[in-house]
Design a protein around this nucleic acid. Structure first.
Length: 553
RNA sequence: GCGCCCGUAGCUCAGCGGAUAGAGCAAUUGACUACGGAUCAAUAGGUCGGGGGUUCAAAUCCCUCCGGGCGCACCA
């Protein structure tokens, strides 16, 4: 008996009651979703359906609850039902029914937690998308951790998903980047609007090594070589950093593709994007420029897409890029952006609308708050920019991914770099990983003591800490789906901490291996199932966060 | 000025309109000749920024004020 099955039983009972009372409304499984009561004395699962139906049915919540309770009590696996407070229906399962989840988990293994809640959706998830003109810093790192975990959670919920990194490799900043490298190679000062920093000097020497001619080429040619070679090297650095961080992108999309002229049509993707928006009736000409009427979709002013001098704005590439995603078959386009880009939300939504898509359904822009260091915002001037590579060296991938992944994106995050460098155990990731390692230690000890899994009798799992642990294990698939639906992968981290805590408390109270001369009983054997099931769920949860699950620490 | 996000324990932060608001860290006190003490048990710590409103029920939804972050380009 898992919560989904119990919900289904409850739904049938409540629906029948509605029919008896002649009510016209119908309920879905979501209306009867069960929650785990905060207080253990309230049972294993609780429903607030009686209170929700009180008004439409015109009777008191407790009366409705009583009617439902009478039938719930006869459901197989339900030990007792009680009504509490304003009308909560509290359900306690018998131990055997509750314990079945351990068998289910061992049967399903690494698949346990996956669900089909988002089946049929084809999602493009874009995140990080840093300029290839410098290393990734802590801000990018947060989106990398969250975006990658979100992708895993969406995939686990049945969605087809592609993660995508948009490379801003067109435009002025690439020339500034190239000029900075060239100046460094020539031993000159950083040019105006150039990029400062040691990494430019490092890139310059690598470029010179690869292209020894650089220093004798004419300016134009040298600039191109510095820019292109530097670009290739820097992008390689970014890709390597992300791979080390366990973050994978399915598509690396170059902005240059959008500017490239198709030989057959004589048009670029941007040209045809503007044409397509124009056909939809959202493009107009004014003051020598070409505009998109984004105010039709909630923007506070219309946006220029092509300047009077014929040069496209950045917005034009955005338009072509959005259409590219649609053309490639993605029904949902999710953008994960930093708060410093939230001004783009309206115009991105307007693009979807202008293209004939539904701005509410087809495009989602998730805005993440910026990371601050000891309360100060990050800036080059303040000298407190921290690179992904440094963070990784201090903390390691697991601790870094976990500490960035356990907070919701819209929560402002303050980090203390001194604390990060200490690598202390106050990071909850160690608590969770230790719980996982402990499940394996227990399994090793069990094997050594002759405790096997040849018997599973769930009715023996009667200790208070066992029913608590079973309840949490049973919730995992729903937590995964909820994380996917709400786009909140941090829920997986919070869940794994709760599970680890319940496991540690169980471990303290219930032995898997017998003491001394005691004989092995079915209780020991059955507990080994529970132990192993917990290990599987911890590993699956950590996997969704891109964090390893060590068997020893 | 306008817009978006945030304000919860000393600190960092959880908390899909539900029961007595939680966790970790920090503090105090206990538990190893018992599967690994990277653990567990217990104590202490709160006007959920202030004020209105909706609701059987508000930290959660609405309005307003105060505080903080970030944006308001024919830049990328």
């Amino acid at each position: 008996m898992n919560p989904a099955e119990l919900s289904a039983s409850l739904l049938a009972i409540v629906s029948a009651m509605l029919e008896r009372r002649g009510a016209t409304q119908t309920l879905t499984i979501d209306d009867v979703a069960l929650e785990r009561p905060r207080n253990r004395d309230h049972g294993d699962w609780a429903s607030n359906i009686a209170m929700k139906l009180a008004k439409p049915l015109g009777s008191s919540p407790r009366d409705i609850a009583a009617e439902v309770t009478a039938e719930l009590e006869s459901v197989a696996g339900v030990a007792s039902v009680s009504i509490a407070g304003p009308g909560f229906i509290n359900i306690t399962l018998d131990a055997a029914a509750a314990g079945e989840i351990a068998r289910t988990i061992l049967d399903q293994g690494e698949v346990y937690g996956r669900n089909e809640g988002l089946a049929g959706q084809s999602i493009n998830l874009e995140f990080v998308s840093a300029n290839p003109t410098g290393p990734l810093h802590i801000g990018h790192t947060r989106w990398a951790a969250l975006g990658d975990s979100l992708a895993r959670v969406l995939r686990a919920s049945g969605a087809t998903i592609a993660t995508e990194f948009y490379i801003n490799d067109a435009g002025n900043q690439m020339d500034n980047f190239g000029a900075s490298i060239l100046a460094a190679a020539r031993g000159l000062e950083t040019p105006e609007n150039g990029y400062p920093g040691q990494y430019i000097a490092d890139l310059a020497s690598r470029v010179v090594q690869l292209e020894p001619n650089l220093l004798i080429l004419a300016d134009d040619e040298a600039l191109a070589v510095a820019r292109e070679t530097g670009y290739r090297l820097q992008l390689g650095e970014i890709q390597a950093s992300l791979e080390r961080f366990n973050v994978h992108f399915d598509v690396w999309f170059s902005e240059r593709e959008l500017h490239a002229i198709d030989q057959a049509t004589g048009q670029s993707a941007i040209d045809s994007a503007i044409d397509r928006l124009r056909v939809q009736g959202h493009v107009f000409d004014a003051d020598d420029a070409v505009w998109v009427k984004t105010t039709d979709f909630g923007d506070d002013k219309d946006r220029v897409i092509r300047r009077g001098n014929g040069i496209f704005t950045y917005f034009a590439a955005d338009a072509a890029y959005y259409l590219s995603k649609s053309d490639r078959g993605y029904t949902h386009k999710i953008y994960l952006l930093g708060a410093d880009h939230h001004g783009y939300v309206h115009r991105l939504k307007a693009l979807a609308g202008s293209a004939g898509d539904d701005p509410e359904r087809d495009i989602e822009v998730l805005i993440g708050q910026l990371v601050s260091i000891n309360g100060a915002r990050l800036s080059k001037r303040a000298g407190n920019i921290i690179e992904l590579n440094d963070l990784q060296a201090w903390l390691g991938t697991d601790a870094l991914r976990y500490s960035l992944g356990r907070y919701p994106a819209d929560s402002p995050l303050t980090l203390d770099p001194e604390l990060l460098q200490k690598r202390t155990n106050d990071n909850p990731v160690f608590y969770v990983q230790y719980a996982h390692a402990r499940t394996h230690q227990v399994a090793r000890n069990a094997a050594a003591s002759g405790v096997t899994r040849e018997v599973f009798d769930a009715s023996l799992l009667t200790h208070e800490t066992e029913s608590m642990l079973l309840g949490i294990l049973a919730e995992f698939p729903r937590v995964v789906l909820q994380s996917a639906e709400l786009r909140e992968p941090h829920r997986i981290a919070r869940y794994s901490e709760e599970l680890a805590g319940a496991y540690h408390r169980w471990y303290d109270n219930c032995r898997v291996t017998p003491l001394g001369e005691e004989t092995v009983t079915d209780t020991h054997r059955t507990r080994l199932w529970l132990n192993d099931a917990t290990g599987i769920v911890l590993r699956n949860a950590l996997g969704l966060l891109g964090v390893s699950a060590p068997e020893r620490m």
